[in-house]
Amino acid sequence: MAEKPSFPGYDTMARRDTQSWNEPTRQAIDARLSVPREPRFFTVEEWDCADALCQLIIPGVIDPPLVALLDAALHDGDGHGTRTQTVPYRREAWRQGVNALDSCARGSHGKPFAQLGKDDQSALLETIQRGEPTAGQWGAMEPQDFFKRCVLGDIPALFYSLPQAWNEIGFGGPASPRGYVRLELGHRDPWEAAEVGPDGDSDTVERKNRHVV
């Protein structure tokens, strides 16, 4: 497997004040980045559990923390409005889900999910993902479906809504009123991320990415 693409020096936010961003986009991203860092939907215990879960699904240093975005999203609305036979509407599902996770951790390790070691946390999630029985109280909710619909459905979506994530994957980011000119395969507009390899060595690319505005 070849080395993964990298985009050193690329910063989507550098285009914030260019033709690539319109006012509604600036407002949306500003609000996202300044999301309150305290629970409004979750209780403190639920927040801790959800925080640990978020850090497991998307590891690494992330600002703002994904749990803050999750809490805000649930505080503001009920998300994708469908429920199934096995997973209730989002607010209810998440509330039940994090409590069930905690009950699983208590059942098997005697402490809440957030206090487990990373390996134990991962092992528990893998058990749930495989659809195997857990030691927790899930009520009418199907753990595997909760994991698929809510955990995997919502948490990565929170991360990839952040400029930090766009920088990491070389995404062009917001694009209005200015869109793109060079549509041809392999061609890059001067306001798109340069990639190590196709666009030169690491130093060249970093230099190019400093001028990506």
Partner: peptide, 20 residues
């Protein structure tokens, strides 16, 4: 309209529904 997947959720019908 923002250039943003999340911010634009407001144009979808996300009211409650049941699927089975």
């Amino acid at each position: 309209f923002a250039s943003d997947e999340t911010a634009q959720e407001m144009i979808y019908w996300n009211d409650h529904r049941v699927t089975d």
